[in-house]
Every structure is written in structure tokens, then in C-alpha cells.
Amino acid sequence: MTTHPDAALIVGYAAGATDLDEATLWSVEVHLETCAECRARVAGGAPADTLALLDRVATSLSVEIESGPSPARRARTWSAARRRWMVWSLLPWLSMTAGLLVTALLLETAMPALPSVVLLIAPVAPLPAVAAAWSRRHDPAWELIAGTPAAGLTMLLRRTLGVLLVAVPLLALAGLGAGAPVALTLVPCLAFTAATIALGAVIGVRRAAAGLAGAWVLAVLTPSLITEDLPVLLRPDSLGVWVLVTVAMAGLALTRADSFRRLSSTN
């Protein structure tokens, strides 16, 4: 690689000399692949008629390119981002979250005697979409995706983030509409999402979401609707606890990253 072929050889190669043996030809070609200087010498060493031919081809090509249609520019970046972060199959689940919140808001305005329904429903509102984001049933291409290197916790987190990007503004709006503290609508929701993923590493994301949502509805939502009293958990003093739970659950989920490499049948 260090020695350049001598000038006579280059000129002979450029002219297509027939007296060069194959071994010499190959060594020249291999050298040319990596040496721009020698490529320039080949271009310069070509016979006059070859250079004229190349010129002619170049001129006619540029005329053709000028007169032809210009290359179509495709707006791809946005559509690619949308495909990756938001799989179409999640749309119905996100609209379910939206529907849930709208109903809660209506309920709250209709029956002011009840404790804030938006606050009560907020922690579990995004869970259906989170469960659907990592599920054999709801992703038509699950088998293709489960076999790819990108499948794993990163993909689940990315999809969950996609869900949250839609759910969090909805929750914030609903919280503002209901006059509830926005932090108390958002942080419990994040805590439940993180807990779903952490628990999902053990029993599958779908079961984890169903279990956590069920437990919340049975243990907190229903009793507080019956007693018409906002539970301690959703009063402003509890915010610190929710933050702690969120951080702990997110940390736990990260340590169990390997469990998400395969999309098991429990998902």
C-alpha cells in the first residue's frame, strides 16, 4: 500500500494496455481504491480520445439532468419520527384515556359534592395505553419486532413516553379545568406508569397495568366516592411520597431491563 505504481504502469493501465498481467492489474486496482492521488494520475494519464469521450458524456449528461424533472423531495423526517414514537395501534387506547378524562371532568362539574373525580382517575388514566404499548395482542407486528435488537426496555420506554406525551397535556388540561393542583394530577400518574413497568418486568406489563388499576379503583377510588371524601393520598401533603415512589419504581424498572428482551405471552 505504501509504494505507488510507477508512472508508466499508470499510463498503461489508463490506456487499457493488454500486456499487463492479471496480478499487476489487481495490485494497481487495489492501490487505486485507497489512493486518491493515483486515481487523479489515472484520470490525467488517459489517452486524448478517452478524455474527449468522457467530456462528451459529461456534457450530454448535464444537459439531460438540466432538462429532466428535478428530484422529488420527500418530507420524511416528521413521518419517520411519528412512526417510531407512536404506533398507530395505540390511538384507540389514547382516545380511551381522553374519553375517561372528559367524563371525569363532566362528572365533576355535574356533581360538585363529590371529591375531585379528575384527581381520583388521573393516576390510572394512561395505564390502558401503556399496557397496549407492550403487548402481543395489540401490536400486529409483535413477532417481527420482538426478534429485532431494538426490542427491549428502551423500546417500551420510548412507547410509554409517546403515551405520556399525549396523556400528560390532557391530564394537565383536565386538572386545570377541574381547578385541582396540576402536580397532584401528574406525579401520581407518573408513579403508576413507572410502577407498571417495574411490576411488568416480573408478571408482564398487561397484568401489571390491570392489577395496579384494579387495586387503585377498589382501594382508593370507590371508597372515596362512597364516603365523598378526598383520600389522604391525594392531598397536597402527599406529593413528596408520590415523587419518591416514582423515582424508586423507575430505578427498579431500570435494573430489570433484561426482562423485556422478549415479548412474553403474558404481555
Binding site: W88, P140, L144, I145
Partner: peptide, 20 residues
């Protein structure tokens, strides 16, 4: 084999290449 019906062939193969 399931796929996203709204994807074009090229988008589908690109998406899979990205996942790989």
C-alpha cells in the same frame, strides 16, 4: 406476519431496518 397496514412497502422495510 403482522404489519402496520398504513405503511408503504418502503416505510415498512425502513422501519424494520431501523429496528435492526
Amino acid at each position: 406476519f403482522g404489519f402496520y397496514p398504513r405503511f408503504t412497502v418502503r416505510e415498512f422495510v425502513e422501519y424494520m431496518a431501523w429496528l435492526k
